[in-house]
Each structure stands twice: as structure tokens, then as C-alpha cells.
Design a protein around this nucleic acid. Structure first.
Ligand SMILES: [Zn+2]
Length: 265
DNA sequence: CTAAACGCCTGTGAGC
DNA sequence: TGCTCACAGGCGTTTA
């Protein structure tokens, strides 16, 4: 479900409800989640950090909870204790409840001490909104890569936060064909990609994320960037720039959408 | 080493 | 209505 913009929206929405608040309970309804209540009970949340598609709830002793929402995960905040569909875990705070719902159970929820969190953060590639996202660091990543640029964008070890929807959108804005090999990109295309990545993600954040089927904000409502998608899920529909029908192909076993006229190999 | 393919999970909607 | 199939915002592991 969620890529960088959706996680960032969730982080911003949860922040005022969680920071400076104490954990008072934990209920787990899925044996794939292994957290002991005593790991987090009575700790106070001091920050919420996002990198790529990961969200960390940081406690006063620097330990943290890691959340990754997989394909269908959501974090729903409620004042009262509620039974929600596909709920895998529920955290009670002094103020309310956070429910981790996730139909396909690809998501992750783990307790980490500080050094473990550092390791996860280190393993993730450049986040497009971190200060390390610079032109020099960006082009260094492209060296010696012989794979389709779409696959490159989706690999979280190089750049973190881009998934299947936004990779197609970024490539359309950059006018780059998704199958173009990274080592064949022109300098102009590289520059265009470098700029399009934060631009598309930013627009999606302004629109509170993309809800096509599963994504929900923390109050259960939908985002609206799905109304602004230029190519994703628009197979056969006219390109909004030139009118050519949008095509769908498979790359890395994932649907990939592009305009064959605006995005030449 | 790099890059591609597979497997994990469950739900939904289209077509027959 | 009921069945089957394709498909779904991801990623860790296995294979080539
Ligand atoms: Zn076009």
C-alpha cells in the first residue's frame, strides 16, 4: 500500500497525538508480531521518525517501535478502544489507541533498541527529503548499474521511499522510459530524474497520499492524489500530455505504466 | 559480485 | 450465484 508520501502523512497525523504520551498497554493478535508488553509499557514517546517507507516510534530510553506497512497496512488512531477489521496489534496510550491493521500481513512491527534502529536506518538508501539527497550522491548511485531505471527506483537500498505507483509517475514526469538501462541514461535524464523524485513525492504529500484501494489515513479517510495520477492505473487512457494511449508492461513482476510517445527508450 | 525470480499472505473484482 | 483467475502502494530469500 504505502510509499513515502503515505508514511509521511501518517507520521504527521500521529505526531500531535503521540509525542509526550505514555504507553499503557499492548494487545497483539498475530503470532508473526513478537513484542513483549514490558518492552514498551510505561515508556514515553519522544519522537516519530520516518525514513523511506519505515516509521519509528521513539521512546524516552531511545528504544523504538519499527513499523513497515507492507502492501495493505494502516495505522488508525482512535480515542476509544475499537475492534477494527484486519487488526494485528493495538497499542494503548494515556490518550487513545493506535491500531495496526494489515489484511495481507506483509507489514512489520518490531521492538528495537537504539543500535538496532541505527542499523536499519543505515541499510536504507537515500531518502529524497533528507539533506544527504544531493546531486553528487545521486549520480554516484547510478554508476555501473545495468538494470531498468524503474527497477533501480524501486530498490530501497539505493533510494528509499519510492514504490510501484510513484516510480511510474516519476518516470513520466522525467520523460524517461521505464525500461531504459541506468547506465544508458543521458546527463539530462539524470538531472530530470533527480528533480522529479522529490517533486512527485511532494505533490502526493500535499494531496495526503494515494488511495486506490487500501491506503487509509490515521482517521480512516482517503487521500486524493489518485485523482492526479498521470499514468499509474491508466492503461489505454489517453496521455494527458499528447493523447497517446498509456501502456502497461511488467517490470520486476510489477505493473508499470508509461506513455510510449513521451517516454522513448 | 549483480540482477532477476520466487515466495510470503489475503482480499477483491472481472469474466464465465 | 459460484467458481477461477489475475491482480494488488513490498520486500527478504533464493537462484542464475
Ligand atoms: Zn504522452
Amino acid at each position: 500500500m504505502p510509499e513515502l508520501p503515505e508514511i509521511e502523512i501518517i507520521r504527521r497525523e500521529l505526531f500531535p497525538s503521540l509525542v509526550k504520551v505514555r504507553i499503557v498497554g499492548l494487545e497483539i493478535a498475530d503470532n508473526k508480531i513478537q513484542i513483549r508488553s514490558e518492552d514498551i509499557l510505561n515508556k514515553t514517546i519522544i519522537d516519530l521518525i520516518r525514513k523511506g517507507k519505515y516509521l519509528f516510534v521513539i521512546f524516552n530510553d531511545r528504544s523504538s517501535l519499527l513499523f513497515h506497512l507492507g502492501m495493505t497496512g494502516s495505522l488508525i488512531y482512535t480515542k476509544k478502544r475499537e475492534i477494527l477489521r484486519f487488526q494485528r496489534a493495538r497499542i494503548a496510550t494515556a490518550q487513545g489507541f493506535i491500531s495496526f491493521c494489515d489484511a495481507r500481513r506483509f507489514g512489520k512491527m518490531k521492538f528495537l533498541i537504539e543500535s538496532e534502529r541505527e542499523k536499519v536506518l543505515q541499510s536504507l538508501g537515500l531518502d529524497p527529503f533528507f539533506p544527504e539527497y544531493t546531486w553528487d550522491n545521486f549520480i554516484r548511485l547510478l554508476i555501473n548499474k545495468n538494470l531498468p531505471v524503474k527497477n533501480f527506483l524501486m530498490n530501497q537500498n539505493w533510494i528509499s521511499g519510492i514504490g510501484n505507483i510513484y516510480s511510474s509517475e516519476i518516470l513520466f514526469l522525467s520523460k524517461v522510459h521505464p525500461e531504459k538501462r541506468v547506465n544508458k541514461l543521458t546527463i539530462k535524464e539524470k538531472k530530470s530524474l533527480f528533480e522529479s523524485i522529490p517533486q512527485v513525492l511532494n505533490q502526493a504529500i500535499q494531496c495526503e497520499g494515494t488511495t486506490i484501494r487500501d491506503y487509509q489515513r490515521t482517521n480512516g479517510t482517503r487521500g486524493f492524489f489518485q485523482n492526479c495520477l498521470k499514468v499509474y492505473d491508466r492503461e489505454g487512457k489517453p496521455c494527458l500530455v499528447c493523447g497517446t494511449p498509456i501502456e502497461r508492461i511488467k517490470l520486476a513482476q510489477r505493473s508499470t505504466y508509461f506513455c510510449p510517445h513521451c517516454q522513448k527508450k
